[in-house]
Design a protein around this nucleic acid. Structure first.
Lengths: 239, 239
DNA sequence: TTAGTTCTAGTCATTTTGACTATAACTAAC
DNA sequence: GTTAGTTATAGTCAAAATGACTAGAACTAA
């Protein structure tokens, strides 16, 4: 009964049906560039196994189930397709143009996630799930190129302001690693000394007694991020 | 056929039906405070004429029609309920909690608009449409208090950064008027001299040869805003 | 032991910010 | 018509933030 639109309706009926609601997610993680080895932004895409856009790459997503919140739907879908459970997940935008999908009208509420490198390394990769460099995508299904571009724009904005870079890193990190994240996302070099002064000015960054060993030079001190994601009306700060 | 969920279905059927999609809008405009006379933020609300939340005040909104984009739906609904055609309209957030509406599950994509005082003065006001001070709202229908709070938070954020204040003013304005907007939204006093220095540093503010006459003191110069709204993936900058 | 590398602290000139002063230009009261 | 009152506007000055740069510390590799 409630699946009539999805299965048996013809095109004319679908045109009059209420728009269907889908949830998609843009997932960012850092991976070393193949060429330079420096960290760059990557994201997982899934290959479409049916029309429309069969065999093209697309953002992970699916329909909203009736017993889950938008955030939960994004989280679940993310886990099912990539195995990831990101600590940072935020609503990006609702895309509802008329011709996003050829036959039926689809409104997509898109979330974006940041995952740590250790998590990203564990992510499932298969014939139909693969990671791509965020700045070198080929043509994706639907309007997903535009969505990724918008997510990148938002990421850069947030980066210039708030303390979001740490969600792309593990629990402990060096100040040089933080700087590399900024450099990867903002795509420009930053002065190490001045950057360090900035970061050390923010109270959410805590010095640990540990040092990162194993480098070919002086071992840098490890730091820890003590702030909260805290944003949007869904993720209330949980004290 | 496609109205089965809206009209004839019983509660059990609605629980399993796909969530319905609605568009709502938070509309901000400046009006003089009744007490101090200084400009403060107001917004129009509509009285609900049916259950749920019958007779309570709510944000203007309605269902999404199948032949209009999200932005168009917000714009149309806004015009129909209040007669307003705002020049600034942006997506705020998609609210999709499970129990926002008692019977049926509703996902609301909420927009927010800024209108100029001249427009706001022309807005329809009636038994079922009335303006309220944004910071002194009583209990609204659904989760609309939380939505307004979030819109206020976003407005303050944007204000601290970008050039959004001008959309609450007319085409010509004095620097003192701009400062009053900032003071109203941020809720704190600003030094007139320093504020003027800041504003004059932004290239989007253009001096006109005109002066505002009729005050009880030295007539201030009038300025004009030459920037674009330009934000979000829907409103592409139109060169 | 030395060269090479990054980490880290610090200097210094420039720019930005916040608090404040002073003058200009108008109206209203006298 | 003079003066008091008010806001507009320009400017000063110290404090804070920023950008470019120097130099020593602490490690590895040769």
């Amino acid at each position: 009964m409630n699946t009539v639109y999805a299965t048996s309706a013809n095109v004319a009926e679908r045109r009059l049906a209420p728009p269907s609601l889908a949830i998609s997610t843009v997932i960012f993680a850092l991976r070393p560039s193949e060429s330079s080895g420096r960290p760059t932004l990557w994201l997982p895409l899934v290959r479409r196994i049916r029309e429309p856009f069969k065999d093209m790459w697309a953002l992970p997503g699916g329909p909203l189930q009736h017993d889950e919140s938008l955030q939960d739907a994004a989280s679940r879908n993310l886990r099912e397709t990539t195995g990831l459970v990101p600590q940072y997940l935020e609503q990006l935008y609702a895309f509802g143009g008329l011709h996003r999908s050829p036959a039926q009208r689809v409104v997509s509420i898109v979330y974006w996630a940041l995952v740590q490198p250790t998590e990203a390394a564990l992510a499932d990769e298969s014939e139909n799930v693969r990671w791509f460099r965020a700045d070198r995508l080929s043509e994706l299904a639907f309007d997903h190129n535009a969505i990724v571009d918008y997510a990148l724009w938002r990421l850069r904005n947030k980066m210039a302001y708030g303390s979001i870079a740490y969600h792309l890193l593990g629990e402990f990190f060096t100040l040089a690693q933080v700087r590399e994240v900024y450099e990867a996302v903002l795509d420009r070099q930053l002065d190490p000394a001045n950057f360090r002064r900035q970061i050390k000015g923010t109270p959410e960054i805590e010095e640990t007694g540990e040092y990162l060993q194993g480098g070919k030079h002086r071992p840098p001190r490890l730091y820890r991020f003590t702030g909260t994601p805290g944003l949007g009306p869904d993720n209330r700060s949980t004290p």
